[in-house]
């Protein structure tokens, strides 16, 4: 995997690497992708209709009004709060 691909993936992943880390990561990812490439040896196709017969993802809860979590609890793990989540100023 070349450095440009690692930079691209880092951008997608919202991560940043120093130049030194980029080279090390490129080497590690090359070895990892070599292992992943094993799946290319077998010629099979995914059957979209076959999966998840036993997991009923449409079995939703009744739409019943329930008590919400108090705001203080929701905010208790946020570092910067003023009774709301605070982010750096965004000007488009």
């Amino acid at each position: 995997m070349d450095l440009d691909m690692v930079k691209y993936l880092a951008e997608l992943s919202k991560l940043e690497y120093s130049e030194g880390e980029l080279a090390k990561t490129a080497n590690e990812m090359t070895d990892i992708i070599d292992l992943m490439d094993t799946v290319k040896e077998i010629n099979i196709t995914y059957d979209d209709l076959k999966d998840n017969h036993d997991v009923y993802l449409n079995d939703l809860r009744e739409d019943v009004q329930a008590e919400s979590m108090p705001t203080s609890k929701v905010l208790q793990n946020a570092v910067n709060t003023n009774n709301c989540f605070v982010v750096p100023k965004v000007v488009e």
Partner: peptide, 20 residues
């Protein structure tokens, strides 16, 4: 910056592989 400081190396590798 929060993600880059907060996650360790193995977690970052797996995120990269997943997005790849």
């Amino acid at each position: 910056k929060s993600r880059s400081e907060g996650f360790g190396e193995e977690v970052k590798r797996r995120i990269l592989l997943g997005n790849y």
